[in-house]
């Protein structure tokens, strides 16, 4: 197979990229891959290589010069490695990641397995929402006895949630 760039040497480096959800393959010879910086991870955005051309730019769009406040991960690190620092990076870089994930996956929301713990958290959050609504209602109706009891329940639930 010939190199897609120079079209004269045999290809030895094979890239598969996903661009806007479509898979694209690029075959390069040794010389061209070096020239394009494919074999030098610092010179070539590995994020682009792994996630499709434009991935590194995409993440920059959302959060200019943003840095994860806790782990110190930056968009430059993402550009270099195509990997994130820790789970909180998904929030820090949410804006840029959003369109990236959209292009990469079938949907934008998880519909698969939910861990047991998250199930519980969802239930607790639901209860919290109901209690808060009832509390507001009780206060409006000047039903202070109920309100006090609801406040206690909310406090207890807050304790459970932080655990």
């Amino acid at each position: 197979m010939l190199c897609d760039v120079c079209k004269c040497n045999d290809a030895t480096v094979f890239l598969t990229q996903i661009i806007e959800g479509k898979m694209q393959k690029v075959n390069l010879c040794d010389a061209c891959s070096k020239e394009k910086g494919v074999q030098d991870p610092t010179g070539f955005a590995l994020a682009d290589l792994l996630l499709g051309i434009g991935a590194a730019e995409e993440i920059e769009k959302g959060a200019p010069s943003q840095k994860c406040p806790v782990c110190g991960f930056t968009q430059v690190d993402f550009k270099k490695t195509g990997r994130l620092g820790w789970s909180v990076c998904y929030i820090t870089f949410a804006e840029g990641l959003g369109s990236l994930l959209k292009a990469m996956h079938k949907g934008t929301e998880h519909v698969g397995k939910v861990p047991e713990r998250a199930h519980r958290a969802v239930q607790l959050n639901d209860r919290m929402r109901k209690l808060t609504e009832n509390l507001q209602k009780a206060v409006q109706e000047e039903n202070y006895e109920t309100a006090a009891s609801l406040r206690d329940q909310i406090k207890q639930l807050e304790g459970e949630l932080t655990n």
């Binding site: 996630l51 994930l101 998880h110 698969g112 397995k113 861990p115 998250a118």
Partner: peptide, 24 residues
């Protein structure tokens, strides 16, 4: 999962180092 709490987001699912694996 009984003993370990995994990085999970209700919207994005299981969080992974590479965004290509996020979700399931």
């Amino acid at each position: 999962e009984n003993d370990l709490e995994f990085a999970y987001d209700p919207r994005l699912g299981y969080l992974t180092a590479c965004p290509t694996n996020v979700g399931t």
